[in-house]
Measured scan of single mutants.
Amino acid sequence: MSGNGNAAATAEENSPKMRVIRVGTRKSQLARIQTDSVVATLKASYPGLQFEIIAMSTTGDKILDTALSKIGEKSLFTKELEHALEKNEVDLVVHSLKDLPTVLPPGFTIGAICKRENPHDAVVFHPKFVGKTLETLPEKSVVGTSSLRRAAQLQRKFPHLEFRSIRGNLNTRLRKLDEQQEFSAIILATAGLQRMGWHNRVGQILHPEECMYAVGQGALGVEVRAKDQDILDLVGVLHDPETLLRCIAERAFLRHLEGGCSVPVAVHTAMKDGQLYLTGGVWSLDGSDSIQETMQATIHVPAQHEDGPEDDPQLVGITARNIPRGPQLAAQNLGISLANLLLSKGAKNILDVARQLNDAH
């Protein structure tokens, strides 16, 4: 009898209710805020589980004197976190989706994509230029951005401005803007500013005609071990179906173009009346040469937790077992079709030249 009692006690200790789920994140304040929001949602869904947040620095956090596009290494903000995932030191990792490459290392998958916040870019102005827009900034004003995508589009749109690289986390960039006289304004992701509670610093939100956004911008991705079915089931509740389908289309477009950090590629997606609209573009580094096109596809946005595919093969690095396969494939095909259209119009040449120029500098 006593033996059975011990077995029952052991089973209770090993039951999922007692389990601590370890969540990996970057150390920056924004990353911690984003991770806290994901953990809060998981806690609400699984009140019996405990969650421990483990923060670590990544290569991208450490190399702050070089433009991201020049470092010449993929997975700048993800490699150390993936290493911890691989060694079973954490069970899942919360990322900004735009930091996750469209091809993940073997053994990993994006197990959830959370509801997207505003994906557009924002302009934050130096205190002396508050009330201005990019259009009304004085001639030769210097605007800071760490992104080739932003610089290429904005140089084309605002030729009277000069664009220079600015690195560091959000706090560091804002301090550089406010305390030094080098920059009249800087460009940042609206979602990051909003998550930090800095709505009052948003001086201008850039519309798609001015600057399309990065693939996955404004959404959070939760990376897990691809074979860890328990954790895949656990994080599945975080999937937002519309965000998922938009981001599958965007990531398929980028992957098929073979774009990345070192080339200016941008997108804009919208879901309306059962249609998914995808606009994508590529630019030369100075913005003088560009190709942009829009395509659409009829896609039914499923309700969360309709029964999805059981075999769960990944699409552009994403596993969404609780979302039907048909809409996911339709979104992926839309991204591939748009990429093929741009490639047929000469996108590869623009991107190759951009890559060579970026590598040469």
Rank of each mutant, 00 (worst) to 15 (best):
T319M: 01
V142E: 12
N340R: 08
F125I: 13
D121E: 07
S57V: 14
N88H: 10
D359G: 13
M56I: 14
F77P: 02
H305Y: 15
E179A: 14
G168M: 00
P324F: 03
L341W: 08
L238D: 12
G259N: 00
I166M: 13
P47M: 03
D307E: 06
L85C: 11
R116A: 08
K345P: 02
A152C: 10
G107D: 12
S288C: 10
V93W: 02
V263M: 06
G168N: 04
L49I: 06
A84G: 07
V316P: 06
L49N: 03
Y213F: 04
E86T: 10
K43H: 09
A214G: 08
A55P: 11
V316M: 01
N322W: 14
H126S: 14
T58D: 03
T109D: 03
D91F: 00
G236M: 02
I113P: 01
S69V: 10
K272F: 12
G216H: 00
T172M: 05
L64P: 13
T319W: 01
G72F: 14
W198K: 11
S57P: 05
Q50I: 09
D273G: 01
A84R: 06
C211V: 13
L188D: 02
A297R: 01
L81Y: 03
K74P: 06
K74Y: 07
D312A: 11
V353S: 11
R116S: 07
V222S: 02
R150P: 03
K176M: 12
E250V: 01
V224R: 04
H268Y: 13
L49P: 12
D307H: 15
E82Y: 03
I336D: 00
I71T: 09
P241Q: 15
A185G: 15
G218H: 01
L245I: 12
E80H: 07
E242Q: 10
L97I: 08
L232Q: 03
R167Q: 09
T109N: 07
E250F: 01
R355S: 15
T319Q: 01
A151I: 06
L329V: 15
I248F: 11
E86K: 14
Q50P: 15
Y213K: 02
Q181V: 06
P119E: 06
A219N: 00
G317C: 14
Q50D: 03
I205G: 12
E135L: 12
R255A: 05
L193Q: 06
A270Q: 13
H239G: 02
S147Y: 04
L278N: 02
V202Q: 06
V222H: 00
M295S: 04
W198I: 07
E73T: 14
L329W: 04
P105M: 10
G308Y: 01
K348S: 13
F125S: 04
C211G: 07
L68I: 12
A84T: 11
H160D: 12
V93Y: 03
N322G: 01
V265R: 01
M271G: 13
E210A: 07
D359M: 02
N118I: 13
S57G: 09
L134F: 07
Y213H: 14
L245C: 11
S147L: 00
D307F: 15
V222L: 14
H126D: 09
C247L: 05
F125N: 08
E89Y: 13
R195T: 02
I350E: 00
L188I: 03
V353A: 10
T172G: 09
P105V: 06
L64R: 09
I186V: 11
H207K: 13
L154A: 06
